[in-house]
């Protein structure tokens, strides 16, 4: 039986999620053994420089990092989708627009004019959008960066044809399972755990720090209710806005509108 062909692509992002794949170390070698990694610039010694010509071939699985920030990217993404049986996104940029989506609520031409000597040379779209705003996504993996163990499970599930057990519930659930005293209740800290997706392994609350939401909104997050609690702690509306306006702002704002 032929090994499944896998392509790992990136758009606007920091490459950190792809590095999280390398962080699997021995398991990463498993990927090389079990699949044909047909496209993975981050893992090549010498990038071919021509960008994405290898796409012409079919992929059984496309793994996509990064948000869509330019016109060219949106065309390339369509091309990838058309050539892939399954497409999964990895990380806050691909799944939720990334920190660069903060510009969606500002004027990008103003940024261009103030930061670049030749603003016309910058081909940025007015908005940075997640992959799901453009094409059908079969599975989304959240996090900034993703949790390597979750990626391993998702890839194994793809190979086995099963549904991954990656959660959509709150970080609190993971926190309570681990028996970590609540930093919000016992510490009155502005912890985003109640509205944030589990999956990171409770990195911050384990170190007695408030969650800052890098895994994005959980399914059905009641964001306004949490912000009212923070306002009760004395945080201003603007401070609350800033807590949410990070790498997952696109999805947090979408969720706020839903209520």
């Amino acid at each position: 039986m032929a090994k499944p062909r896998i392509g790992i692509f990136k758009f606007t992002s920091c490459d950190g999620c792809q590095l999280s794949i390398f962080n699997l170390e021995e398991e990463f070698l498993q990927i090389a053994g079990l699949t044909e990694i047909a496209y993975f610039q981050e893992g090549q010694d010498a990038p071919d420089g021509n960008g994405f010509q290898a796409w012409a071939a079919h992929f059984d699985l496309a793994v996509v990092e990064g948000s869509i920030s330019t016109e060219r990217q949106s065309k390339e993404l369509l091309d990838i989708r058309e050539n892939s049986s399954r497409l999964i996104t990895i990380g806050a940029c691909a799944t939720a627009g990334g920190v660069q989506a903060l510009r969606n609520w500002a004027d990008v031409s103003e940024f261009k004019a103030s930061e670049y000597p030749a603003p016309d040379a910058v081909e940025a779209l007015a908005e940075s959008t997640p992959i799901s705003a453009h094409v059908h996504v079969d599975y989304e993996l959240w996090g900034c960066p993703i949790n390597s163990a979750e990626f391993s499970e998702v890839l194994a599930s793809f190979l086995l044809g099963k549904t991954p057990g990656v959660p959509g519930y709150s970080l609190c659930m993971e926190c309570k399972r681990k028996g970590i005293p609540c930093v919000l209740v016992a510490g009155q800290a502005p912890c985003l755990g109640p509205v944030t997706r589990a999956g990171c392994g409770v990195l911050c609350p384990s170190l007695n720090r408030a969650c800052y939401g890098c895994f994005g909104p959980k399914d059905g997050a009641n964001i306004m209710a949490l912000m009212r609690i923070f306002q009760g702690f004395g945080y201003t509306e603007n401070q609350c806005r800033m807590m949410l306006d990070k790498m997952n702002t696109y999805k947090f704002r979408e969720m706020e509108e839903k209520g």
Binding site: S170, V195, A221, R228
Partner: peptide, 11 residues
Amino acid sequence: RRDLECGNCTQ
């Protein structure tokens, strides 16, 4: 309206 749906109560 107040419920965070976080599941802490159940845990």
